[in-house]
Nucleic acid binder design. Structure first.
Lengths: 331, 331
DNA sequence: GTGAAAGCGCTAACAT
DNA sequence: ATGTTAGCGCTTTCAC
């Protein structure tokens, strides 16, 4: 078929094994033969077959990235630095689409075609971490986490972040506060909702059940949630959204229904995705530093590949408040 | 190491070859043994090694997707349906990052680890198409194209789209019109700019060189371009942007510099990325139907894998005008 | 420093 | 219908 290391060997007048060694600059090959081999390889346009190499070494230099719909700007914002970092460190990203509703098919992660995996969409009931752990596939959880004895973790300090949001709104004099939460089986939605509720409670403010809605982390949930909250008998003067996508959905509906933000109602998000900083949006939000979170996840995983004996690690990224244009004092 | 088809064979009391056949439901295996083999495989948690399979068959069920920074919402909007479609058809996407400035490293596309490639970022001088073509790696160009004797093509009808934009603005009475173009070595920027210029000329309106700026397809170029155009001695009353990202950058600057769109200046984009339809943006643009373009690209490629003798094909997707809130009659 | 040879775990052609 | 055997194209001992 196409050109193999045997062809290169023949042209260079050496054995196939020497070609293999020379091309990988292994010690135990003279500079002279290296040059001859390299020249022969160049002449023939030889590219080592990765599949053969993988079969022989059990390493593929490919990492699986399990992530949701990229139409969701949050996932796009997360995937970007993941891919960039993997690329920098000499790995290719194999994207495994997880629609976040049907159970993930783990087989592509277990068939030996990957050196490890980055899981960005685990839920409370996800089987993948347990499955990968038992089979010895190294992985890291990013963004969302799940208790378990395997896998490193790189997540935002969601509790601290939600507390910052609560303190901002309380400081602005808000007392009737609503929340648009995410899926309760995600660690992010859970931690953010609970910490926000706790922080309000600490100030003697209740997060009234009638002013809390839940749904998927998407624009529609944000829009509909905004409607529901503002349609309540006594609507809130501020809304905390469990992530930016929800918040942007809420702002969308605010605009189309003639509610002014922030004079009538404040809106605060979480994540600080790139969209949030667009002039037209100017969302006040909690920054989780997505880029650092992603880079850390990749680094944790690659360190583990280098040293499988490493203990389980969990990196919590500090959250900071980003004040833009969607918050104001309570009316 | 881990469990192989030999282990399954031993447990099921058959030969390894029979395991291979049974698990793939090949004709020439009795239903009884299939059941036994499947049961043994289940018991052992056997997953066929993809690398071994690939080495034996020269097929990997993986497609490379060469694409730019996903921080750019256009690429995210394009990658989403590409991945989804590949997934639907049983393929995994291996994302090969192309930073759009340094020369792409083709090796991952040539090392036999991919059945084919989708190229989304070709430029006039890109070597990849020629390289892949010569080596017999099937590929498809999506979004941007390049002349050449290999590879199928799935692109928008950029000329027709730009003509629609010109007609819209002319119809609104604009005569002093500016343009923010993209990189001149991309087929999209080129076709859109030229067709726009031609359409204006046909109406006796000149696209004055002083009112045309070029740059990368990013927000910064849109912002800076807007500044430059509006700072001209006689600023335009309408600006056509070669894509939505540029247009959103322009809108961003318009807002922060107190220029009202569309009463003072109209802005029209191209692509209709999801962002364009956000209420806060409401960009009037030309829809290229990204999703269909992506799905078509994948289908063209997979058809070619099934039948390599197929002639070269080029699918042009109709462009339509999407009227939102950034266009108005000339002041 | 280099060559010979034995795998890696499958698929597929060839027997039976 | 099933077993035997020969690859696929590398990496990696083990000799020399």
């Amino acid at each position: 078929m196409s050109v193999t290391s045997f062809d290169v060997a023949r042209l260079a007048g050496v054995s196939q094994a020497t070609v293999s060694r020379a091309l990988r600059d292994m010690r135990g090959t003279s500079e002279a033969t290296r040059r001859r081999v390299r020249e022969a390889a160049r002449q023939l346009g030889y590219v080592p077959r990765q599949t053969a190499r993988s079969l022989a070494t059990s390493r593929t230099r490919r990492i699986g990235v399990v992530i949701g719909e990229l139409g969701n700007p949050f996932y796009a914002a997360l995937l970007d630095p993941l891919i960039a970092r993997l690329h920098e460190r000499g790995y290719l990203a194999v994207v495994v689409h997880d629609d976040d509703v049907s159970e993930l098919d783990c087989e592509p992660l277990l068939d030996g075609s990957l050196d490890g995996a980055v899981l960005a969409t685990v839920r409370a009931g996800s089987a993948a971490p347990e499955e990968l752990g038992r089979r010895g596939v190294p992985f890291v959880l990013v963004n969302r986490e799940q208790a378990g004895k395997w896998g490193d973790v790189s997540v935002a300090d969601n509790r601290a972040g939600a507390t910052l949001a609560a303190e901002l709104l309380l400081g602005l004099g808000h007392r009737r506060i609503g929340m648009i939460g995410g899926p309760p089986d995600t660690s992010t939605a859970r931690a953010r909702t609970e910490a926000f509720r706790d922080a309000l409670a600490a100030a003697g403010v209740a997060l009234s059940p009638g002013l809390v809605v839940h749904g998927a982390f998407d624009l529609a949930t944000g829009s509909d949630g905004f409607d529901r909250l503002m349609g309540a008998p006594r609507p809130p003067t501020a809304i905390f959204c469990a992530n930016d996508v929800l918040a942007i959905g809420a702002l969308h509906r605010a605009r189309s229904s003639g509610v002014d933000v922030p004079s009538q109602v404040s809106v605060v998000g979480f994540d600080d995705i790139p969209l949030a900083s667009l002039a037209q949006i100017g969302l006040t939000t909690v920054s989780a530093d997505l880029r650092t979170m992603a880079v850390t996840a990749v680094d944790l995983l690659l360190e583990r590949l280098a040293d499988p004996a490493l203990g389980q690690r969990r990196v919590l990224h500090a959250a900071t408040l980003v004040r833009r244009a969607t918050h104001a004092a309570a009316p």
